[in-house]
Design a protein around this nucleic acid. Structure first.
Lengths: 233, 233
DNA sequence: CCAAAAGTGTTGGTTTTACACCCATGG
DNA sequence: CCATGGGTGTAAAACCAACACTTTTGG
């Protein structure tokens, strides 16, 4: 049957909130093509491995983490996207909290967090992939609870709001944000507080965690965002 | 480089509104595995062919049409989804108007429109693929104008509303539907009318066409649907 | 003149937005 | 006691959902 077998890879955009910025994990390519350029982690899909497994493997190789949010994005397969040969790539995006640290590169590759808002020139079509990933992430933030995946188990509401603002690239109203969040019933307060939130004093903030397996009933789609223009077609 | 090359296919869910029902195009398999079962059209991706091109080729082979709505859905790659060998499939969905007729099967395969709401047992994981496609189609209907892709160039507002109702599986309010559609500015009236809409008499309905390249400014996401429950996580 | 389908506005309820001050703590 | 960030309510506007009758045509 299979006349033409093709090389199939997975590439993973790994996002994290660090230093009040949305970061993405990049690896500097040690070999041609695009030697020296930055790229997102990826590798070949093994013949006995599910696509998600391959993506998790790539993720674990770079970060050591296993149980994080991972979602398939899109499959790119332009015949010339890799100058060497035809390669089809199934792309994913992952969200990791900021306490995850990078593993020393197995293959001696340099890996680093880069601001999503100031990317260097990337190898292959990886800039397109990340652009698409950011769009999807923003979109999901509006009507799902993926936002929690970027934070540790317990967080203050201000931290959560800041996370949203960094990813969405816009300011949100504190009172409206909190009201909707609480009305949606997807966070539970703990009895703990965190003092002096970062660099100094101030009233300690209550810590919350999100209710796993919570079923929230929303009245509409837009959870946290004001209305916006939608370009049709 | 490429240690493991894999077989890569595209499979296309082709939807059409016919006989007041949402139909999907199925082909009866002439060879094992799943010989005699119905399946959606698909085939191997050629080594010099973009994924979209492969999907369009499959679509054209069955229907003869070229310029229709086509969108990538998801990539399925469980190692055992095809009992013969590892096959990764990039899936698409397409929308064709009801004036498209099936081409006589080149490879003598039987092809027919089936109700999406009364599917036979399907080969491989094609039932999952179609379920996913329907979900995506419904979702897109709510906040984009894909609905027009199911209708000919000129249509009455009742026809458009009926199309929405069939795909969404629920009744919509005539006055609200029309108001929103007109306020969104995405259809233009023509000076033509269509008499006796189907089976008899009645006041002739004005024909509309949709404004290609229209940019519509929506106030929110939900274009035509009432609020609904969203299950989180 | 009857049957069939097209076409058309209003109201009440809900949701969304905008907006400013007091509170608790550490230094 | 002051600087810092946490926490809280309300009112106006926009939006959405529900609902019934008149118009035009063909037979």
């Amino acid at each position: 049957m299979g006349l033409d077998r093709l090389a199939v890879t997975v590439d993973v955009g790994i996002f994290s909130l660090r230093a009040n910025d949305l970061k993405v994990l990049l690896i500097r390519r040690a070999a041609p093509p695009y030697k020296g350029r930055w790229a997102i982690p990826g590798g070949f899909v093994r013949s006995d491995e599910a696509l998600d497994e391959a993506a998790r493997r790539e993720l674990a190789e770079e970060t050591g983490v296993h149980d994080v949010y991972l979602e398939q994005l899109y499959t790119f397969g332009e015949p010339r996207r890799d100058p060497r040969e035809r390669v089809i790539t199934v792309t994913y995006f992952a969200l990791v909290p900021d306490n995850v640290i990078l593993r020393a590169g197995d293959d001696a590759a340099e890996a680093a967090w880069h601001s999503m808002y100031a990317l260097p020139e990337l190898a292959f079509d990886h800039a397109d992939i990340l652009k698409y990933a950011l769009q999807r992430l923003r979109y999901k933030l509006e009507y799902t609870i993926v936002g929690f995946e970027l934070l540790p188990n317990e967080f203050t509401l201000t931290e959560l709001q800041t996370a949203y603002e960094i990813v969405l690239g816009e300011k949100l109203d504190k009172r409206n944000f909190r009201r909707r969040l609480l009305e949606a019933g997807i966070v539970a307060e703990t009895s703990k507080y965190r003092a002096g939130s970062e660099k100094g004093q101030g009233r300690p903030a209550r810590l919350y965690r999100y209710k796993k397996n919570a079923v929230a009933e929303f009245k509409g789609w837009r959870l946290f965002l004001p209305a916006r223009q939608v370009i049709i077609k």
